[in-house]
């Protein structure tokens, strides 16, 4: 529980024990968010481990992870709750079949039993019961402004009002993590309610550490080769620079191939794992794949 996380060091230690290698700044942000009961807003390029923070945190706190994946047009029916229409219809038929004598109350089919809770309601209900789930609102930048406005309201008082049932509210908010890949700017009003943290690409040492921790089978030399290559790629002005997720995919792919050091040939064969745009692959081949292997200096 949160009680065991009394300091930034506790948080960092817990993250490490879950094989998440974090910068100290992230540890501070997580610690603040937990202590202040504010949502944590994580922004950064794709594949730097934003979503992972929520998963790891749920595991540390030993609570369920409730995830809401955002997309354009996301509405209340998919984010908060939806009535179970087929069951409602069946119930109406049943009442009709019982004929005149049956005394059915319409409020029956508008009760909690006929409600399907979606992630936001799930989180509020769990919190209302005294639990403290981790609510992950993933890739908020994909949702439209209308959903953002709803979220703003929801994050300020953690309650959901269902006209037919009433208001469900949580005294203690769930742990909320929002992520954004920055495909658009999220409104300031929403960010202001959150603890903000920008996750950057890791430096060389940390990236090696991440690879070794996540995939212990990888030889240390190979992890170093990959981290060095990634550093170069990210400085290359690509359309889509590879993230840490790509480094791990790459390490895994090379593991399958039984490679112990990165060579220009193996790198060229596996470029598709790390570069997702033909343009970027061409750009790299134009300067020469062997550039990735050149040691500093």
């Amino acid at each position: 529980m949160t009680n065991s996380l009394k300091s930034v060091d506790d948080v960092l230690e817990a993250l490490t024990s879950e094989r998440y290698v974090a910068e100290r700044s992230l540890g501070v942000a997580v610690h603040l968010a937990l202590q202040l009961g504010k949502p944590l807003f994580l922004e950064g390029e794709a594949g730097v481990g934003k979503t992972e923070v929520a998963k790891v945190l749920a595991s540390i706190l030993d609570t369920p992870l409730i995830r809401l994946q955002c997309y354009e047009g996301l509405d209340v029916g998919h984010a908060v709750y939806e009535w179970d229409y087929p069951r409602q219809m069946l119930a109406i038929r049943l009442i009709e079949a019982q004929g005149e004598g049956a005394h059915a109350d319409v409020t029956d089919i508008m009760s909690r039993d006929y409600l399907v809770a979606r992630p936001l309601l799930q989180a509020v209900e769990a919190a209302a019961k005294g639990e403290r789930p981790v609510l992950l609102i993933d890739e908020l930048d994909r949702a439209d402004e209308e959903f953002e406005a709803y979220l703003l309201e929801m994050l300020s008082d953690f309650q959901v009002t269902i006209p037919e049932i009433g208001t469900i509210s949580a005294d203690r908010p769930p742990v909320v993590i929002l992520t954004s890949n920055r495909t658009r700017e999220i409104h300031d009003a929403l960010k202001r309610r959150c603890i903000y943290h920008w996750i950057d690409y890791p430096n060389f040492e940390r990236e090696v550490e991440i690879v070794l921790r996540k995939i212990p089978e990888v030889p240390e030399e190979l992890a170093g080769d990959l981290a060095r290559a990634m550093e170069k790629l990210r400085s290359m002005d690509l359309f889509k620079p590879p993230g840490v997720a790509e480094t791990l995919d790459w390490a895994a792919a090379l593991g399958v191939l039984g490679t112990s050091r990165l060579s220009p040939e193996t790198a060229d064969d596996t470029l598709g794992v790390i570069l997702k745009y033909q343009e970027d692959i061409e750009r790299l081949r134009a300067v020469g794949v062997e550039q990735l292997l050149a040691t500093a200096g």
Binding site: R24, S25, A29, F41, I195, Y196, W198
Partner: peptide, 13 residues
């Protein structure tokens, strides 16, 4: 730590 904490509550991009 104070630096990171202050940054987390004031910076938003």
């Amino acid at each position: 730590d104070a630096y990171h904490a202050f940054r987390a509550v004031t910076v938003s991009r």
